[in-house]
Design a protein around this nucleic acid. Sequence first.
DNA 1: GGGAACGTTCAAAATTTTCTGAACAATGTT
DNA 2: AACATTGTTCAGAAAATTTTGAACGTTCCC
Lengths: 177, 177
Amino acid sequence: MFSNSSTHQGLSWAAERHRFIEAGGNTSHAFGLGRMIGRAYAMLYLATSPMSLDEIAATLRVSKASASTVLRQLASWQAVRQIWVAGDRKDYYEAETDFAVILKEGLMPGVRKKLQTAGTQIEKTLQSSTQKASATPANEEVSPADQAEIRRRLRSAQQLHQRLDKVLGSKLLARFL
Amino acid sequence: MFSNSSTHQGLSWAAERHRFIEAGGNTSHAFGLGRMIGRAYAMLYLATSPMSLDEIAATLRVSKASASTVLRQLASWQAVRQIWVAGDRKDYYEAETDFAVILKEGLMPGVRKKLQTAGTQIEKTLQSSTQKASATPANEEVSPADQAEIRRRLRSAQQLHQRLDKVLGSKLLARFL
DNA sequence: GGGAACGTTCAAAATTTTCTGAACAATGTT
DNA sequence: AACATTGTTCAGAAAATTTTGAACGTTCCC
């Protein structure tokens, strides 16, 4: 009578896996990494044996092109390992289940690079703001008091940047995960 | 002869400010927060007196509608304070320059909520995976060994989630900023 | 009350990002 | 050599996000 496979309260495993995958997608999306990344990783995280590109694409209902792209992204973050099976031309993938590795080796460098870009700009602006003191055109400009305040702020931003970078680079963080 | 205001190497302050603002936009964008957020905050960060909505919109070359939206977002993160000037109907805004406040009061709750969503799903899937042991339809399904492995992984994910949430909630973090 | 000055909301437009199918390169098979 | 299989790339399509202009609600002033 019931076409549904599980007879009472619980959802079927297939359905639950699907929810897990979508939740993974939502999470990665919420953190600005794109929805596919999380979906693909979540799927492999629940897979007990390596999956081929085709299987992955089919499971996620996505083109092979998308799968290829997202897997290479995940691999570049060490979130996924590529497995070669002897006598099989397909590429197989499995999830790295050690989050410490992914965060430390994969994600952190990217985060630090982004912060570095910001830090460089702060530095430049700070320089411009100090040098300006003498080179200001008679033109209507920023008052000396305001200049001082701006420099104070920029230095404070710089300080935060440095502290943050240091913390992210320290193994203290790695030990926490 | 030279229309440019600064005579040698340095860029004009206006130009440098522009670069700073755009860099702010790029940074917030890189972290998945949208480009406007960073632009607006960066601008106010360099402003030594509160700015009205119109001034902000004009400086960022953006509609008043956008400015209104982005400022409310920033205000909800405590990244910006609203200032009322007596006898002036305009709203004025100034940047919160204390990053600890912004991170702790503004950004962190959002991050934790996102993590919470993920955590809830892990919990659900874990439950489904344990309950399933008995309720599995005779159907082709996951082997007991694989089930055990999946549960192991889910518990590990749950553990990470809990540790992360704890760290983010602790004032230890706040003290670092 | 009529009108001006502001900020907000929302449907639609503009833009950016993501996804796909087709073409291709590389490798193996018959 | 011709063909199959597999993964990648890329221009264009599709989808999601952001931005806007116009309509609206308030508040204040005359």
